[in-house]
Design a protein around this nucleic acid. Structure first.
Length: 478
DNA sequence: CTCTATGCCTGGGAGC
DNA sequence: TGCTCCCAGGCATAGA
């Protein structure tokens, strides 16, 4: 199923292999595949040189020296490959372009869905499909203003809306599921209910995902006889597509598969909730690894008077004297866990649960729901006030199961060597101790993988802060 | 005009 | 094992 990145890879491969080649004659085996009818199609192409191969959306445009352009769409399973003249035909080869250099450019398509349309230069945009095609998904051609305009005026649900090539060119079933998961949008969310921030994040994710996929495929076409269809394998990792029943890599919930507008649709029922009216408040989950420098990033928000909800502070607040959680701790672990003044004896409790998984789990079962509840309450208050941006600063954003409930995740990261050196210097630790501390956490790479924004803190602090500010500006959050 | 359902095709997997 | 049925999905088009 070639989508834009695969078609682009085919274009690049073909350009290298047959760019400049001249067609001697053409065999059309499956007549319905070409237009105009085979006799005229063949006549127009005899002696034509392939000057250039361009792409628009998922359409390939072969520019010939004699004033014709061939619009070719691979649909589901179309493939081009180049063989030496006379090599045996395969079962599903439908068109063969015999080149003057003893090679053949072949079009193969098991399901015969692909089409080739040969028209005069300048008429290519009149071909069905290209006539109504939407903007290319690039930084300059797919603008936020355009997206906002088309999203606001439609009541359609987002999945079929994004599949419609007249809205945005190039997205297919796989990438739509991926970008919706990345942006945490339910596939049946009506497009006119999205907030500006969601549209911005979606735009960013479309551009990012397609660029990543093109990069990933760029190196796959090598040899003379490589079937370009092989470049259509999706080497870049997919987070939801085809993963129904597996845990969501962001929140751990079981991924589901349903049908939306007759299309198989994959999504995370926990991260991608259908919302009556998406909230205008953006909750940014901020996390990192030990000694990655999260607090200096947090300071950027403090300095700008952006509210920061501190998970560690809330963890302390929920066990203050007279709190239900503290009473439960006393009831479970004994009154000796309290100081004479009624406050929690943290040291003693810490020693008690240290290295005892069962006891630690008991403690978490008491504190975790209380912390979650308190966080939700704080967030709800900011939503009511329509505060545009709230930061939830949580070292255990993933481990503590908060990731499903934030709108966007920022991970502060650095390379392992720098992280190790900083931890050793900061906490006066031996290398062995520092290593084991780092290894006891969820690997930073896994956090980075599901982050919306990764802030690289391996350089000077000014550079780190500049990255945060740049992103905030880009997303119009400040 | 918009919106939805269906046809185009074949191979492969599930179920019997 | 072999048979039937259904699903995969981009896009055009027919119909509401």
């Amino acid at each position: 199923m070639p989508e834009l990145p695969e078609v682009e890879t085919v274009r690049r491969g073909l350009m290298r292999l047959v760019g400049g080649a001249t067609i001697d004659h053409v065999d059309v085996i499956y007549e319905k595949m070409v237009s105009p009818a085979p006799a005229e199609f063949k006549k127009r192409l005899a002696g034509a040189t392939i000057d250039l191969i361009e792409r628009r959306g998922k359409y390939l445009l072969f520019r010939f020296s004699n004033g014709y352009t061939m619009v070719s769409h691979l649909r589901m399973e179309g493939k081009y490959d180049v063989q030496p003249e006379g090599a045996p035909l395969t079962k599903h080869t439908h068109v063969v372009f015999h080149l003057t250099d003893n090679r053949e450019l072949r079009y193969t398509d098991t399901r015969k869905f692909g089409r080739m349309n040969l028209v005069e230069d300048g008429d290519e945009m009149q071909v069905a499909g290209l006539k109504t095609i939407g903007p290319e998904p690039t930084e300059t051609t797919l603008t936020f203003d355009y997206m906002k305009r088309i999203f606001n005026k439609s009541k359609k649900v987002i999945k079929p809306f994004l599949l419609d090539q007249s809205n945005i060119a190039g997205l297919g079933n796989i990438y739509v599921d991926e970008v919706l998961w990345m942006t945490r949008i339910h596939p049946e969310q009506p497009v006119n209910t999205l907030t500006d921030f969601q549209i911005r994040l979606l735009r960013d994710n479309i551009l990012k995902e397609l660029a990543k996929a093109i990069d990933g495929h760029g190196t796959t076409v090598h040899s003379f006889s490589t079937a370009f269809g092989e470049a259509g394998q999706f080497q870049n990792q997919l987070n939801v597509y085809g993963r129904e029943g597996e845990p969501c890599v962001r929140c751990g919930a079981e991924l589901q598969k349903t049908k939306v507008a007759q299309r198989g649709t994959h999504f995370c029922p926990r991260c991608q909730k259908l919302k009556k009216k998406p909230s205008k408040t953006v909750v940014l989950g901020l996390t990192g690894g030990i000694a990655t420098g999260k607090s200096s990033v947090s300071a950027v928000f403090h300095d700008r008077d952006i509210p920061v909800i501190d998970a560690d502070q809330i963890a302390r607040e929920v066990v203050e004297p007279d709190s239900p959680a503290l009473s439960e701790i006393a009831a479970t672990f004994g009154q000796t866990m309290l100081q004479p003044d009624g406050t929690l004896n943290r040291r003693k409790l810490g020693q008690h649960v240290f290295n005892d998984e069962d006891e630690l789990a008991k403690l978490n079962a008491i504190t975790s729901p209380a912390i979650h509840k308190a966080v939700k309450k704080r967030v709800a208050a900011y939503r009511r006030k329509r505060t545009p941006l709230v930061v939830f600063d949580a070292p255990t954003l993933f481990e503590g199961d908060y990731a499903y409930d934030v709108d966007v995740i920022m991970v502060v990261a650095l390379d392992t060597a720098t992280q190790l050196a900083r931890l050793m210097a900061r906490d006066k630790m031996s290398e062995t101790d520092a290593r084991s501390r780092i290894n006891s956490q969820l690997p930073l790479a896994e956090k980075v993988n599901v982050a919306d924004i990764v802030v690289d803190n391996s350089g000077p602090i000014d550079k780190t802060k500049a990255q945060v500010v740049k992103w905030l500006n880009k997303m119009q959050l400040v």
